[in-house]
Computed example of a mutant assay.
Amino acid sequence: MEAKQNKAAILKRLARLEGQLRGVTRMVDENRYCVDVLVQTAAVRSALRAVERLVIEDHAKHCMEEAILSGDRDEQREKFRELVALLEKARD
């Protein structure tokens, strides 16, 4: 990924996510209560969705904007299809 506006925020969130995942692994290894583990996995999913939103925002603000400004209709269509695919994946 090229350097984008949200890069620092994305990297910070990913580092936090990495720590959360290690914590969940530790919880499972220590046979912690299932509900506690599930609460933490829900937090991980939420944090990952936040990362996805930032990446999608960068794609829309930079990649799509470049395609629009280029005037190249094929590139515009390609970037739009990419955005729709990203939104569909993020929704799942």
Score class of each variant (00 low, 15 high):
F80V: 12
L54C: 12
V39C: 10
G23I: 00
V39K: 14
H59E: 04
E66P: 02
L11G: 05
L87A: 11
L83I: 00
E30L: 07
R16K: 14
R91W: 09
E82R: 15
L54W: 01
T41P: 09
K4A: 10
V28N: 13
E57W: 00
H59I: 00
R81H: 12
D72H: 02
D58Q: 03
L54P: 12
V84L: 13
R77W: 11
L48W: 01
E78Q: 13
R45G: 07
E18Y: 03
R49T: 07
H62I: 09
A47K: 04
D29Q: 15
K89I: 06
L21G: 06
L17H: 08
A85K: 13
L83D: 01
R22E: 10
V51N: 02
L54Y: 03
R26P: 04
I10Y: 01
R53P: 02
M27V: 11
G19N: 13
I68P: 01
A15F: 08
K79S: 03
I10E: 07
V55A: 11
V24G: 08
L54E: 13
E65F: 00
L38F: 07
A15K: 15
L14A: 08
E66A: 13
E78V: 10
L48F: 09
R77I: 03
V44D: 01
L83R: 05
R91Y: 08
E57F: 02
A90Q: 05
V37R: 08
L21V: 15
L87C: 13
A60F: 01
R45D: 08
